[in-house]
Design a protein around this nucleic acid. Structure first.
Lengths: 341, 341
DNA sequence: CTGAAAGCGCTTACAG
DNA sequence: CTGAAAGCGCTTACAG
């Protein structure tokens, strides 16, 4: 109680061995006689000794910690991603240190400096929208994996989904149902994910002459999505299909369609991106491009663990495919239905 | 590039001063001549020197980090809580280290040991359901604040909401609309939040003779909530009002009601606990006991910062009130409506 | 305004 | 199988 904090030395003294021997017992390195080992464990228990990770890290010039920097942990996508990384990394000896940057390039840099001061073993990063991070900035972390969004001119392993193809499929799905005027409500222009998905949308439409595609950029939030969708429904009453950039924007679209007095899927068909619990609850259930968040997080964890264990991992993107889940929010547009009838 | 990593010594040598002086410049402590200070900053820049937090922590026997241990970061409630704590703590010089425990008492203990090995300044904890943590376990962290759930026989400041009163209000709301058979789908029996809310439910009903209250315990997930609600609707067709323990359980209730072919609010009125984006999207919008997650996180951050700065903070709970938001999911039961008509 | 010495708790060579 | 010495990068007294 009143004794000073237990250290490797107080344990060593109690047993009558050197600190070095205690260290060996603790780490399971080298040879220690069974008798000594038992005595050390007994002293550890008696003193309630707990290793000090700070001393260990300082000596090793490295902390068994992996930094995770995301744009917004309040966004379920990032929360699930973090959880998936954590599950993969559990038991590997590494802990995770989570940081937020509110999608602000300056905060991102600040958080990264902070993280770096602890000399972590690696970093998993979802770069911020206007990120100014360079190869050099990331190289300082040793092992880096980027997830979801990709940084220009930076050569680190990245885990991404096939947004281009997936949105292409979703667009094709609407076209196949007879929609001829389709809108995509995107995220911020500078995000690589926005570019990918926009390309997929435009490519699919360019293959369908006579059909029109409309695109809007937003901040990727529910209110941003709602505002853009409302404006579109008002100014382009011919739009009968809409694709959301992410789950939040899709919430906004669904809300805007209802507020505008249109019905889904009778008047407007909707396809979301990234599944969410409410999408199966809503009537009609929302069709969605299901992003494999868990697989993406697990793969990012794998890559980092591989790099940390010395395996060489080549830079560049790993694509984990998203797939279209068909539910009830897509139907032929009213005009087509009438024509058929 | 090829030079060894910059340290306080390499900077000192370049300037021709002692390491001590560099430390003073870095920390803004003591007196340093303007000329020396400028020279030190120049050398820091030239060498791209970054302070090593590990060395600093070891010397200080304390790391400017606050551990945050929650049951499940995939649950939006905890994600929002973490975010709120982070916002409050930003700029204070402390970083947050987030850990998960999957509501498992054993993992909780393991994560806590890990965290403790870094000698953090404090801990914000949402205790796991079956937590075996004692006063001693937490005292080792120096400064501790518990949030949402409360630990028996542990005397640390806690930030909670008034679950008892809030559920009492919700129950009263249903009673006032003429419901006489009401169910509450709760979380795990051992959670303090379950006990609070259950008490509030029973207390409100005991004041209304002739009315019947039914209670079910679940694991607090959507599927748990859905199973319990389905069973109730099947075995107790007289139930016309249901209250959910949290947002996920409420999802389950809404789903079960629809699957059972009952309409909300015509056949069954529903009140949730903890607001979520989908609740205003769903038709009808779900009435909810709105839990002030942001305020709770901010208060927890405040308390910890106060304790860390030496202010004395007395143990015991701080209650941040939840309030009932009335939306469209509560109406008189069909039988009452018929009688009135 | 500035510096030499010691030490935070641990592990890495090195030597037996 | 075990130990004495040094050092990871920093800050805390102490002394000028």
């Amino acid at each position: 109680m009143s004794e000073a904090r237990a250290t490797i030395y107080t344990v060593a003294r109690a047993v009558g061995v050197s600190a070095q021997t205690v260290s060996r017992v603790l780490n399971g390195t080298g040879q220690v006689s069974e008798k000594t080992r038992a005595a050390v464990f007994a002293a550890i228990e008696a003193q309630d000794y707990r290793p000090n990770a700070v001393g260990r890290s300082l000596r090793a010039s490295r902390t068994p910690m992996i930094g995770v920097l995301v744009a917004d942990i309040g966004n379920p996508f990032y929360a699930r991603l973090h959880r998936a990384i954590e599950r993969r990394v559990a038991g590997s000896g590494y802990s995770l240190m989570l940081m937020n940057c509110d999608d602000d390039a300056q905060i991102e840099r600040h958080q990264l400096d902070l993280l770096r001061s602890y000399r972590p073993t690696g970093l998993v990063i979802v770069p911020s929208i206007g990120s100014s991070l360079s190869d050099d900035d990331l190289r300082a972390f040793g092992h880096v994996v980027s997830v979801s969004r990709v940084l220009d001119d930076v050569h680190v392993p990245a885990v991404v989904t096939n947004g281009r193809e997936a949105v292409g499929d979703a667009t094709a799905e609407l076209l196949a149902h007879g929609h001829t005027e389709i809108a995509m409500i995107l995220g911020p222009r500078k995000a690589s994910t926005t570019r990918d998905r926009e390309e997929g949308f435009n490519a699919a439409l360019s293959r369908s002459p006579g059909c029109r595609g409309l695109v809007r950029h937003t901040d990727g939030t529910r209110s941003g999505g709602e505002a853009a969708a409302s404006e579109l429904l008002r100014t382009h009453p011919g739009v009968t299909g809409m694709i959301g950039f992410n789950a939040l924007v899709t919430e906004g679209i669904v809300s805007a369609v209802r507020t505008a007095g249109r019905r889904c899927p009778d008047d407007v068909s909707i396809i979301g991106f990234t599944d969410a619990g409410w999408m199966t609850l809503y009537p009609p259930a929302i069709s969605v491009i299901d992003q494999p968040v868990e697989e993406m997080g697990a793969l990012a964890g794998d890559l980092l663990l591989d790099m940390a264990s010395g395996k060489s991992v080549d830079p560049g993107p790993r694509v984990v495919p998203s797939t279209l889940i068909r539910r009830g929010s897509v139907a032929p547009p009213a005009t087509t239905k009438e024509r058929k009838a």
